[in-house]
Amino acid sequence: MTESPLWPLVVYFFAVIALVLIILGLSSLVGPRSTMQRATIEPFESGVVGIGSSQIPISVEFYLIAMFFVIFDLETVYIFAWAVAFFELGLFGYLAISVFILILVVALIYEWKSGALDWGVKKRVGLRE
């Protein structure tokens, strides 16, 4: 392995910092000073005036979907790992991943039936009155 010299990296690092300092310094020296005006604190200074707060309450369903996404997204990691080694694993691997997917399917059916996937009004299957 050939040892590549380190100094270009160091020069580059300092060059970047110097460039940033120069740009910031010049613009504050040369640029126009703006005083606090009526529209200064607006999000878009010369654009459309915003209405209301951006902190609107988000529906709980989004969180639920996000959680399902996190869980089911990760299962692909395992399935992908199995797919990569498909031929080496052979029949045993196939059976193992089938069990794995079966469990996922059962979980999905459960989620569906218990109304977690419904948007808006939950069906709430099988609740005692």
Binding site: I109, Y110, W112
Partner: peptide, 16 residues
């Protein structure tokens, strides 16, 4: 135990 948990899950889903 795992398979009985799955069966129980299905019972909860369909016949709570």
């Amino acid at each position: 135990l795992s398979s009985l948990i799955l069966i129980q899950m299905m019972f909860i889903a369909f016949a709570r």
